[in-house]
Design a protein around this nucleic acid. Structure first.
Lengths: 183, 183
DNA sequence: CACGCTAGCGGACACGTGTCCGGTTGTCAC
DNA sequence: GTGACAACCGGACACGTGTCCGCTAGCGTG
């Protein structure tokens, strides 16, 4: 289960890649992988070994943000009824997704990776907690899981900037209604 | 409104490109654009002039299927109540989407193109008809349009083959419930 | 410290996409 | 028919992605 521990230079390279990637997305330049490699002073091979896909890199870059997002779930549940908590959580997700497009991809890949590994993983746990609470209260339909929800809100990633204001929040509401238990 | 009419050779090339593309997708080979160009006996420039994006080509390739899909909407409305009609239409869409992945992209780009051109276009009209009927009967929420729905069902395009059976239909139901008018 | 084994390196390469532009060829007016 | 002009052609090119593999150098051992 525990990683075989990286060699010193490898860990170094990995860290430098992530750092450069973070700078790049922070400057809202687009993420060109071989450029990242060059700027990090490593070959492409190195980059691709550490992060087999673009999403893997994004997942690492946004890990902090994702963890932040995950952390809000319990707090929301403590303060609100399950449906409201879920709604609020969606809003947070939307806020992230708007500014940092990559975060959505990171979440998607994360949930998928985790679910197939049969361990929910942080995001899965957060979402599952929200869903479970709703189910327990009889306000969320019993037949949906974290992956389902992620699939549904995935439209956020395909939204054009200009239609964000009119559609993002609004469709989140539609999704939420779909997740409710049918009376 | 009417296209300026193509030059003879241009029309010819265009037709041949589409034909080849159709063969390729029929053989379930993947669509490599420059390969299409070569097999159609034209340069890439020509291909890209006729179809600026991959989606544009797919839209043409699947136009027939899409029109078929569109045509079912009135029939469904005549036979069923609006919600059932919408549900059935979703199922058709899912059937297409499963077999011909490209059709989803074609629908998405079509709806988007049409909506921005302020003329709904065939798919938009079909969906709008379904939604309107539901609205009129008070069973569909009044604040959603065709683009909204397409965005929501877009998850079909990101579904892994293996999870299709467990999730596709099921999530369609969730979306449908979300589209219902709140009692 | 020296040695060897192997994890890790990194850049050349193969491939797909999409653009650009000099040359060609339909088409229409006369 | 013929000329001229625009529409159209097509392939070279620039770029990004992802793979592969011969070489390098970190790290544990004696």
């Amino acid at each position: 289960m525990s990683e075989p521990r990286l060699r010193a230079d490898a860990a170094d390279n990995r860290a430098r890649i992530v750092e450069v990637a973070r700078e790049v997305v922070a400057g809202s330049e687009e993420l060109k992988l071989n450029a990242i490699a060059k700027r990090a002073g490593v070959g492409q091979g190195t980059l691709y070994r550490h992060f087999p896909t673009r999403e893997a890199l994004l997942a690492e870059v946004y890990r902090h943000d994702v963890e932040e997002l995950v952390a809000t779930a319990p707090a929301l549940l403590a303060e609100h009824d399950p449906i409201t908590a879920l709604a609020r959580w969606f809003e947070r997700l939307a806020d992230y997704a708007r500014v940092k497009r990559g975060v959505l991809a990171a979440v998607e890949v994360g949930v998928w990776r985790d679910l197939t590994a049969r361990s929910l993983g942080p995001i899965g746990e957060a979402l599952t907690a929200l869903l479970d609470a709703g189910r327990a209260a009889g306000v969320v339909r019993p037949d949906v899981d974290a992956r389902d929800v992620i699939l549904l809100v995935g439209y956020l990633g395909r939204l054009e900037e200009q239609e964000w204001d009119t559609r993002a929040r609004h469709l989140l509401q539609v999704v939420l209604d779909g997740l409710r238990a049918r009376p």
